[in-house]
Amino acid sequence: MKFIDCPPIGRRALSEFVYGGLVKHEPDHENVSESVWAEHVFYRHSHPQIQKEWWYHRPTGMWFFFERDTLTDVIHHVSVATKGYANEA
């Protein structure tokens, strides 16, 4: 059980959230090779690390980005998932 400070909805329990997987950048469908696509769909390095993840807050219906350490479960940074954000940078 954890509380996470989530601007703008305040200090919230993790039990109100649903894990939505890694924030990934989807390759361009038009020019993607089969192997690049397979890698996107299936493969990754999933060793312990700080990773950026999608988390859905059920009561408000808002998606958040958590930067979470998958070794310690410490959430280092929280932000509202802003539109198009995942495709930037």
């Binding site: 890698e39 299936f42 493969y43 990754r44 390095h45 999933s46 060793h47 312990p48 998958t70």
Partner: peptide, 16 residues
Amino acid sequence: SPRITNMLDIKTPIEV
């Protein structure tokens, strides 16, 4: 497993 495969830069679909 992911810690070991990471040493060889082998990607897998495994999640822990």
